[in-house]
Design a protein around this nucleic acid. Structure first.
Lengths: 140, 140
DNA sequence: CGCTTATTGAAAATCATTTTCAATTATAAG
DNA sequence: CTTATAATTGAAAATGATTTTCAATAAGCG
């Protein structure tokens, strides 16, 4: 029931529940790879044809604000969104099929702090994404 | 003589050396923080006022292709360029002043491989950026 | 020096994103 | 169940970044 949980959190955040938002949430919350606004638009219109692209942008913005999605940066562009996993902040993305997967990086945070100290930086954030081929996309 | 080295590599790559390219290379190769195309344009016109923004885009594209610059992703946008350090692939960027710094991540590459194996991914690349405050920008 | 062709800057075209706006609709109050 | 109010909507226009087109220029070869 991720979608329902997201809708609850939207409401909790003071936002109204509308058809447009439901459609966007349905698509994004159930997806295992990053989607651009246009991809969300196309998928969500299958359910709710009256949807406007503008509402997709606006809804993604709110989901991002609530920490429900995370922005993914890729070669081609930097405007794709993925459900945000709690606690696990690091990503692996398959170059071929686009499937995304979070992995736990508890051991890394300490390392980042250490690297920061070496260079006299106080580290406040990090961005880590691995790319490669998932099991299914690997040649024999 | 980084600038000269870059110009050599451009020529080696089959490209001609022009005033426009010289101006762009001068600016980017000597900069310690990420610059957007427009920022490069503004800085380079101080030296070569006839420069067109289009040539900045085109030159940055070629420098990227030759591995001389690297694209940096940041909150606001993902279109800033930084000289590419050889061997050191990981970045720390100061949130305040924008100063960028590479650090060696030999120990990390092994770790990335291991994480990949755990999830049956063959890792072919990674993207790591730390952000924080550099020594000068830290409050006492 | 002269030829060939890559490169140029300006302008137009394209593409993604944001803003504007009047109409609609979710929600709270009656 | 109404009604009132303010958030939300989609369409269209506006913006901003990037790319393409194109005739003029200039780099680099012979």
């Amino acid at each position: 029931m991720t979608a329902d949980s997201w809708l609850n959190q939207l409401q909790q955040g003071g936002y109204r529940l509308t058809e447009a938002r439901r459609a966007v949430v349905d698509v994004v919350s159930a997806c295992d790879h990053a989607l651009t606004p246009v991809e969300v638009y196309d998928a969500a219109r299958q359910v709710y044809p009256a949807l406007g692209l503008v509402s997709v942008y606006r809804t993604l913005e709110k989901l991002d604000e609530l920490g429900l999605v995370q922005r993914v940066h890729q070669e081609g562009g930097c405007n794709a969104y993925l459900p945000h996993a709690d606690g696990h902040q690091h990503l692996i993305i398959c170059e071929q099929c686009g499937r995304a997967l979070y992995f736990s990086g508890d051991d890394l945070s300490g390392l980042f702090q250490k690297v920061g100290e070496q260079h006299h930086f106080s580290i406040t954030g990090h961005w880590l994404q691995l790319s490669g081929l998932c099991a299914e996309c690997q040649p024999e």
